[in-house]
Simulated assay, not measured.
Amino acid sequence: MAEKLKNASGATEEVTHRIFTLANIVSFARLLMVPAYLVLLLNGYDLAATLVFAVAAATDFLDGQIARRTHTVSRLGQLLDPAIDRILMITGVLGVFIVGRIPLWVIVVVVVRDLYLLIGGGILLSRFRIRVPVIYPGKFATTFLFVGFAGLLLNWPLVPGLGLTDAAWLPGFSDGMVSWGIWFIYAGLILSLGVTVYYSVAAARALKRALADDPKRCGHGAA
């Protein structure tokens, strides 16, 4: 069974209610890598944890591409794909924080931003049948963060800080040796915050159009 959903541009696309599609299987496999990554990291296997995290992050594009190319875009997949990205992001940053390689404020920014996108996107799709498509700058931001986390996980090679400040909460700008991954973290944070503003504006516009087209249906969700 298939249905039509609106995206943020107002166009409709056909989605299926099938669960066991190839794209969804890839998504489930990526999800299973999350606890594996944490177990390896917390037991001191930095290289193995880095490899598992890298594979989970590098396959980010696969599920979406498979779904589109095989015409098996599913409602579950539209929820699962961004949710796993957010789960992997949050778990990744919490992992490097637990082992003491990143300051707390980075955790707060990443977790709050990702929970906002995860919850907001879920409400829009399940209640209002609206999906805000991922844009390439968002993918770049996610890639920068994933690469940065992988660098912090590997913790090698270390590079000297810039020595611009004595603030310990700004690794890389202060004195001392740091992982090269911290610079990817900073780049990813800046880009991701800008993308979050874009998603918020696009979602607000899409919701306004949907309410104008059919206020009763959008107010009560899909039947």
Rank of each mutant, 00 (worst) to 15 (best):
L191H: 02
V109E: 08
L124M: 15
A204L: 13
D114T: 13
D175V: 09
L125W: 01
L115D: 03
G172M: 01
L145Y: 01
Y199P: 01
S126P: 04
V195R: 05
P133M: 08
P157K: 14
I119R: 06
V159T: 05
V197Y: 07
V201R: 06
L124E: 13
G194T: 06
V197I: 15
V159G: 06
L207I: 00
L193V: 10
R127N: 14
L158V: 09
S174P: 01
W180S: 10
L153Q: 10
V134F: 02
Y199G: 03
L170F: 11
S200Q: 06
S179A: 09
V110W: 03
L118P: 09
V159P: 02
I107F: 09
A204D: 07
V159I: 15
P133E: 13
I123F: 15
R129I: 02
P160W: 03
S174M: 09
V197W: 14
Y136H: 13
P137A: 12
T143W: 06
P137S: 09
L191N: 03
L207N: 00
W156D: 14
G122F: 05
F146H: 11
S200K: 03
R205D: 05
R205Y: 04
G181C: 00
F149G: 00
F140I: 15
F140G: 02
V109P: 03
L118K: 06
W169P: 02
A204W: 13
L153W: 02
A150V: 07
F149E: 06
L158N: 12
Y198Q: 09
L158K: 08
W183F: 10
F128C: 11
A204H: 12
L118D: 08
V110R: 06
F146Y: 13
V132R: 05
A141G: 06
A167I: 10
V178F: 11
V108S: 04
Y186K: 04
S174V: 02
F146W: 08
S174G: 15
S126Y: 09
M177S: 06
L158P: 02
P157M: 08
F140Q: 00
A202N: 12
I190S: 07
G172K: 09
P171G: 10
L154G: 00
L145H: 05
P157Q: 09
F173D: 10
G122Q: 10
V112P: 03
I185N: 12
G181T: 01
R131L: 14
G120C: 11
A187T: 04
W156G: 05
K139C: 01
V178C: 04
P157S: 09
W156T: 15
A150F: 02
F173N: 12
V106F: 04
G181Q: 00
A187W: 05
P160L: 12
A187K: 04
